[in-house]
Amino acid sequence: LPLEKQFEDFRAQLEDSVVLRERIRAVVLEIESTARLMYSSLLLVYLSRPLPEVLDKSKAHIGTLKDNYSRLADILSECPDQYYRYHGDWRSETQTAVSLLAFTHYLETGNLLLHNEAGERLGLNNSQFGLDLEDYLVGVLFMSNELPRYVVNQVTAGDYDCPRKVLKFLTELNAAFRMLNLRNDFLRKKFDGLKYDLRRVEEVYYDVKIRGLASDEDSTGDQRSKEINDSEVVH
């Protein structure tokens, strides 16, 4: 009975896929839980805890995240080429994870965590199981949503130099994002939000500046303006 036989087959295949999904789900729950803890650690920065301590606590979770993703990779290696079939199952958690890594990285270096760096940190940089570009970009924008809050709390705690630095960073980031052609989707909507983050940080910067609270240590400003000009150049 070929018909029945074929469907027997289908049932087995689909059952495998259901089982796979359950296994993925288990790992994704752990990723979510790790990310939650990592976020809790990062929240300490709003409470003016010393940066090294915050970074230590936060970075302590990166290893766990990498382990989680390595287990995910193992699971998916059983069904080669089906990465994108199940992608939706861990998509939003990965975006969150990227945003936490990028925030940590920014706090440590003042720079943006690049796509390949993010992939590396999560062990997602091999060609079979990589970090989806749009997920990375959404993650970066999630992070940028956090920066106005960071700046406000830093100033409240007396760090008046922070707004200038963050403003420079967000300005560059905005310029970089403007190089992209986006569809009318979630990513574009998130990118629209970046403009508001930028504006809020500017406002804080001027609040500080006008009251003579900002330190005068460098004149990065001019440089910044020059640098921006280049990055704005059309390609």
């Binding site: 310029a175 403007r178 190089m179 052609n181 986006l182 921006i228 000009n229 704005e232 150049v233 059309v234």
Partner: peptide, 15 residues
């Protein structure tokens, strides 16, 4: 057309 719109949004004071 969407690409053109994105191009316009690359505008800044100096370019």
């Amino acid at each position: 057309s969407k690409k053109v719109i994105f191009q316009v949004h690359r505008i800044s004071k100096s370019n």
